[in-house]
Amino acid sequence: MWQYEKKLQFPINIKHANPKLAQLIISQYGGPDGELGASLRYLSQRFSMTDNVCKGILTDIGTEELAHLEMVSTLVHQLTKNATTKEIENSPFAQYYIDHGKGVYPVAASGQTFDAATFQVTGDPIADLVEDLAAEQKARATYDNILRLSDDPDVNNVIKYLRQREIVHFQRFGEAILTVSNRFLIEKIIVIKWITGACPAHGASSGFIVYINIL
């Protein structure tokens, strides 16, 4: 079960209202590669994992994503709280404002509401973990896009932190795949080919890709 903690994972103190930027950042709340989908993806996938490393990492990253969800919604809240009607009227946030006011609602920057179709649970550990690697990179790319369009240092510090967490999660998921595939290697007949990067046991690299051929 879960307990709420009355603190953010990273401090957020936005000084200037910016409804236009809020309308972009909200994608990481309810968009296709956002924190809500990330959390639900990992917390749903863990039931069909076959070993404790994967159950543990999906539980813990899925939980951390909930903390990130709170950070993204805090950004949206602080960027809109003191926005004037004039500022809202002249920004792309106006359409969102008509439906949701200054509330925080899970939608993508494009206006599409949150949809569980943005992620999968196959019941297959390798398939799910490979999706998780891609998910972390897609979220990282979304944060990069936000950084290109934002010039508020108070916002960017938070976005850079969240972006860095995606990279750490990617690294941990890569190691979790190795746990599963190494076990299969011993028990079954699977060949693993390293095409880039290095094995964590002999000096870790953050960008390894594993190809698995079932003979």
């Binding site: 079960m1 863990r46 039931f47 404790n52 490393v53 159950k55 543990g56 539980t59």
Partner: peptide, 9 residues
Amino acid sequence: CWIEGPWPW
């Protein structure tokens, strides 16, 4: 020891 089973489910 955190990752050791059993998990609650």
